[in-house]
Every structure is written in C-alpha cells, then in structure tokens.
Amino acid sequence: MLKILKYSFFDLVRSRWSYVYFLFYLLLSSVLLFLNNNISNAIITLLNVVIVLVPLIGTIFGVMYYYDSQEFTQLLLAQPIKRKSIFMGQFLGVATSLSLSVLLGLGIPFALYGLFQSNVIFDFLILIVVAVFLSFIFSALAFNIALSNTNKIKGFGYAILLWLFLAVIYDGAFLIALIYFQEYPLDKFTLIATLFNPIDLSRILILLKLDISALLGYTGAIFKDFFGTLFGSLVSFGVLVIWVVLPLWRMVRQAKRKDF
C-alpha cells in the first residue's frame, strides 16, 4: 500500500492543480493577514473559506483523480497486490497531498507573520486539523461516488450534488426545520443534526474554540455547554473520525466487489 501511496502522492505533487491550490491558500492567507493586521480576524475569515472550499476541492479532486488513474488502476489490478491496498493507497495519496497544500498554503504566511509568538496558535491549529479532516472526509466520499459510477459525467454530477447538499442545502433545510418546529424544545435535535454534517460540525468546533459562540445566541449556549467540555470535544472529534472511517470502509467493500 505504501508504494501505491508513494506513486499517487508524487504523481499529484507534480501536477499543476496541487500548485494552484497551494498558491491560492498562500495568497489568500497572506492578503488576509496583511489587510487585517490581526491573526484572530484572519483565522475567522479563513474559516469561512476553508469550510466551503476544502470540501469542494476534496470531492472534485477525488473524483477527478479516480477517473484519471483508471488505466493505472487496471494495470495494478493484474499485479499481485491486494485490492484494498490499491484503493487505500490512491485515496491516501489524494488526501495527503490536498492536506499538504492547505497546511503549507496557510502555514507559511502565518508562521512568517509570527504565529508562534502569538497566543492564538491553538486556534490556528484547530483550523488546520479541521481542514485536514475535511480533506480526508470529502476525498473518501468522492472515491465512493467514483467507484459506484462508471459514467464520469454522472460521477462528477453526484460529487457536486453531494457538496452542494452538505455545504448549502443541509443548512437551509436545517434552518427551515428550526423555524417550523420552533414551539418545541430543539436543543437535542440541533446538536444531533449538526453531528450528521461534517461541514457544520467543523464550523462549530472552530467557532467555539475562537470563543465567539456568543454570536450564536441561545443555541450557542447549548453548543458551548456540550462542545466546550472535554466530553463534547471528544465526541465531535470522534464523529469526524467516523466520517472518515465509514466512507473508507464502504470504499474498500465496493472495490472488492467491483468488476474491472
């Protein structure tokens, strides 16, 4: 598996898109830092970008890489290598190269600006951790979609729909549900509904860490009550881990059954 990971990783690191992605983050965070002149504010602005962009790029990149490397996959399948190793290797190649682009693109400007001397280093770390989680989650989901669809157009379509659903539609539906059922106690429901969407979960994790949950009003208080405790953090990280593991488990199962 490590050899496949190595080839996928270097294949991606050499590709133009990884550089574009890296340079985008580099530029964005430098501009934000020098305009804001404040690390905390820059982190909050970045949060809004990262939470939407990382899932989008993760899904598109994952689907694109899978379809692009089908020929190589065919070649590998005839070799004495386990199917699980082939697909896990490719997935890890995509996920780590994406994470690396984010890490370096955000990390370099912040480090130069003096992140290590500031007291918000943990806030920044949580932003990075969330970005890495989202990269892994959405490339795993993308591999699932691509494996289940031989038709590329369909695969891309479902990938975009998935992103649209989790990044935009879910929140809308959630909000409508909250308004519609506002007579009822909704705190438990909101908490649980948040756990089912990795984007929402990541957003709340960062907002709470940044201590601006006051902006969230009543729900913010409940969230703070839940996520603010050690138990809450553990649960939310646990859920993020499940969001990585479940799609991967399905991916491996799918790969084992598929005819190539």
């Binding site: 089908q70 190589f72 065919q74 070649l75 005839a78 004495p80």
Partner: peptide, 13 residues
C-alpha cells in the same frame, strides 16, 4: 505472483 498477464488493450497512464 506466479502469473504473467498480458492485458488485451494496453491502457497505460
């Protein structure tokens, strides 16, 4: 490991 296989259509990256 003990099989050499030549696929029908040579699809290479």
């Amino acid at each position: 490991k003990y099989i050499d296989y030549l696929p029908q259509i040579a699809n290479f990256p």
